[in-house]
Design a protein around this nucleic acid. Structure first.
Length: 229
DNA sequence: GCGACAG
DNA sequence: ATCTTGTCGC
């Protein structure tokens, strides 16, 4: 896949925050492409215990049966430490390299992390979507910010995630009796469609299938390629 | 100043 | 994110 460079990555944390504030205005909060996405990509990253050597990968699968169409990964030393609110500056450089090795252009992407459900409304889901200009949604396993009422215990149960009087995402139960996930818009999506897609993508397990596939893929890739450093 | 804090 | 054994429940 090819895409245009949006900005440099050699930034200080303060510069990174300033860049988020600048880029957030370019995020598209609706779904211009009304066609239902067929090819869905899941992305994830993995590191060895005390290392910044990131193995970032993407798996493109078919929405009908989750068969894998293509996958790609990249290994590189992350230029940024983990700082809550600045995750994309740690993981995107590697993730974008992985996308460069992809021939298929997915119709939608699901990211392991927040989209708009972020203090500055610019989580990794928004950042990746902007770089690739592909519809993207964020699906976090835990909360970064915002408040919410516990959603009903059944699959499909949901409640608004609210920060500063604003609905920034949905706390969504994808499995009855299991912890909910945190869904939010990344780019070129609306919250209702994002929740619909996530429920579609998670018919059996808590996490959406594309994310599960990506998770397994990057872990296998790391163990197979990296002799850990 | 204190607590919270995606992966 | 990573490390790690057993254990509870459908």
């Amino acid at each position: 896949m090819r895409f245009r460079k949006l900005h440099d990555w050699d930034l200080t944390p303060k510069e990174a925050v300033a860049l988020q504030r600048q880029l957030v205005s370019q995020v598209v909060l609706n779904r211009p492409d009304k066609r239902p996405p067929q090819l869905i990509a899941g992305v994830d990253a993995s590191y060895p215990r005390f290392s910044n050597r990131i193995t970032a990968g993407v798996v493109v699968c078919h929405r009908d049966d989750w068969s894998i169409v293509e996958s790609s990964y990249a290994v590189l030393d992350s230029p940024f430490p983990y700082v809550p609110g600045l995750l994309s500056f740690r993981e995107l450089p590697g993730l974008l390299e992985a996308f460069k090795g992809l021939k298929t252009r997915p119709d939608a992407i699901i990211v392991d992390g927040q989209g708009r459900a972020h203090p500055r409304r610019f989580g990794i889901g928004c950042h990746l979507g902007l770089w690739l200009d592909i519809p993207t949604i964020g699906c976090g396993k835990t909360r970064l910010c915002g408040e919410f009422a516990e959603p009903s215990n059944e699959r499909g149960g949901r409640s608004d995630l609210i920060d500063k009087e604003e609905v920034i995402g949905e706390v969504l139960r994808t499995r009855t009796g299991v912890k909910p996930v945190y869904a939010s818009i990344g780019h070129k999506f609306d919250l209702v469609s994002a929740v619909d897609l996530l429920l579609d993508c998670a018919p059996r397990y808590r996490l959406p299938e594309p994310i599960r596939l990506a998770h397994h893929f990057v872990n296998e890739s790391r163990l197979a390629s990296t002799e850990d450093a």
